[in-house]
Computed example of a mutant assay.
Amino acid sequence: MKTVLYARVSTMDQTLDHQKTQAEEAGFQINEVVADHGVSGVSTRLRERPEGKRLFDLLREGDTLVVRWVDRLGRNYDDVTEVMRELLSAGVTIKTVINGLTFDGSKSDPMAKAVRDALIGFMAAMAQAETEARREAQKAGIAAAKQRPGKYRGRKPSYSREQMAQVTAMLTNSDTISAIAKATGLTRPTIYRIKDQPEECEKALHLWRM
């Protein structure tokens, strides 16, 4: 039996090391880490994420899956509840770093399962509500900023034009993400963003006159 941490790293302020440290500080002894980088949890189902697919193949009956919060497991209420129930039915126990919740996949008592499933539904609904609230707040902030011509530029790039050029060259040379991170001093999420969204990255540099 093993304990697996699943992490989704989609923004500059989310790092794999930070999420792993949080889990360990909460008392988890992690045997393996599975992480998706630069993947949106709002638009991409867990099974459609590169490492999300591997997670289902990796987990076995008796294993424990650790996530920062249940929103890591799906895009919305339906996704989260579907994934959690599938894993629980396979005998996997799911635990969260935030609030230290445990969803026991070994439960067979009908009443215990009913209570567990009700809690899953509540947590999934709350996670979706929080995600939608953040999205609406961001949209409102962006809309207000766009009313002021020349003011809205988005977040300042964490990379320079020279670093972007170096990343692009190393990717062309088939260098690994780890090697590029070491050579450029950039985080892995930033490198993945340059790799997957070069036009957006170039646009950001232009907007910030970098």
Rank of each mutant, 00 (worst) to 15 (best):
K2A: 02
K2N: 03
V9R: 04
V9C: 03
S10H: 12
D13P: 08
L16G: 01
D17W: 03
K20N: 05
T21A: 15
Q22M: 15
E25G: 13
A26L: 02
Q29P: 02
Q29W: 00
V33Q: 03
V34W: 02
S40G: 12
S40L: 12
S40R: 12
G41W: 07
S43K: 15
R45S: 13
E48M: 08
E51N: 15
E51Y: 00
E51W: 00
G62I: 06
T64W: 05
L65V: 03
V67N: 03
D71R: 01
D71T: 02
D78F: 04
D78W: 07
D79P: 11
V83E: 08
L88G: 09
G100C: 05
T102W: 00
D104K: 12
S108V: 09
M111I: 14
A112N: 10
K113T: 12
A114I: 06
V115Q: 07
R116W: 01
L119Y: 06
L119K: 13
I120W: 05
A127C: 08
Q128V: 01
E130G: 07
E132Y: 05
A133N: 13
R135I: 11
R135L: 14
R135Q: 15
A137P: 07
P149G: 00
P149H: 01
G150F: 00
K151G: 00
K151N: 01
R153Q: 08
G154M: 07
R155N: 10
K156D: 00
P157F: 01
Y159H: 06
M164H: 06
Q166V: 12
N173I: 01
A179Y: 12
A179L: 10
I180S: 09
K182T: 11
K182R: 14
A183L: 11
T187G: 10
T187N: 08
R188H: 05
R188A: 07
T190W: 02
Y192E: 14
C201S: 15
E202Q: 15
A204L: 11
R209Y: 00
